[in-house]
């Protein structure tokens, strides 16, 4: 009798926790935190992947982008620059020091008084503390380090601050996302808010979250950055591409992170 009661109590105590953890955005939806959110439920892009592609993504040994993870690990430990330091000289073990970092980025950078994404943050560490050269935009080593750092937050819920100093930048990012552009005069929101889950010719459009980037593209046979993906979308509507390191891109990335709040970090994702 006592055991039954204990079990019942335990079950009751566990119930809400379990129901919260159930939303992974792949098989079950995540509820957005804010009432101002444009979407009623959040689905990761992986939700629309076939079971085979999903399996590929989940396997550390088969996921083709994990090669870059390995390269990132090597780079993390390699001393570079005039200060003869490596990332690990300052940050030690990534499993603890970088855990959760990807959930908080883009983050406000006090010195420049604006948000920076992980790639820019990595380059700031390189130039300021290692006295090494910044890695070129969209280059393989920068993507490798980015994947290596973001992977330490695997499955952790994205949660950037929508208020405080980030707020004006978030607004700008939202503005970019919801403004019509290009010869087709369409906004990101048209495809990824209004018609998400609908087919656009041959492809089902996802909600356009950034939680899996950099991601491996099976059709392009390479790992690509968020910039590359966004520029593909912009080309589709015949609009000007965004530039690496631009404020526009960082603000957009910030809005995408806010919009994906509650979804788990999936970097590196695998896509068709």
């Amino acid at each position: 009798m006592r055991r039954l009661l204990l079990g019942l109590l335990l079950g009751l105590a566990l119930y809400p926790v379990q129901s919260l953890a159930a939303g992974d955005g792949k098989t079950t939806a995540v509820k957005p935190e804010s009432k101002d959110h444009p979407l009623k439920e959040l689905w990761s892009g992986t939700h629309y992947s076939s079971p085979e592609v999903r399996k590929l993504q989940d396997s550390d040994s088969d996921n083709p982008a994990m090669k870059l993870f390995g390269k990132g690990e090597t780079l993390w430990k390699k001393a570079e620059g005039r200060a003869k330091k490596s990332c690990s000289s300052c940050h030690g073990d990534t499993a603890t020091s970088m855990k959760g970092a990807a959930t908080r980025f883009p983050a406000f950078f006090k010195l420049s008084k604006k948000p920076v994404n992980i790639e820019t943050r990595i380059n700031l560490c390189r130039t300021k503390f290692m006295q090494a050269r910044a890695l070129p935009a969209d280059s393989e080593p920068l993507m490798a380090l980015s994947i290596y750092v973001k992977r330490q937050s695997k499955g952790m819920a994205i949660s950037v601050a929508g208020d405080g100093p980030l707020q004006p930048f978030l607004e700008k990012g939202k503005d970019y996302f919801t403004t019509r552009r290009g010869q087709l005069d369409m906004s990101c929101a048209a495809c990824h808010d209004k018609y998400a889950g609908q087919r656009y010719r041959a492809v089902k459009m996802s909600q356009g979250h950034a939680n899996g980037f950099p991601a491996y593209s099976l059709s392009a046979k390479k790992t690509g950055s968020l910039l590359r993906q966004v520029n593909q979308c912009l080309a589709r509507v015949r609009a000007l591409p965004l530039k690496q390191g631009s404020d526009q891109l960082t603000n957009l990335e910030l809005y995408l992170a806010w919009r994906a709040g509650g979804l788990g970090v999936e970097t590196p994702a695998v896509r068709e």
């Binding site: 403004t179 019509r180 552009r181 290009g182 010869q183 087709l184 005069d185 369409m186 048209a190 209004k194 018609y195 912009l234 080309a235 015949r238 609009a239 000007l240």
Partner: peptide, 24 residues
């Protein structure tokens, strides 16, 4: 509507250079 205009220059912003002033 999201449907694009095919023979009117209604696009407002950031049109790719090669497409400026052109209709679809």
């Amino acid at each position: 509507t999201v449907m694009p205009a095919y023979h009117a220059r209604t696009a407002s912003k950031d049109v790719k250079r090669a497409c400026r002033g052109r209709v679809m």
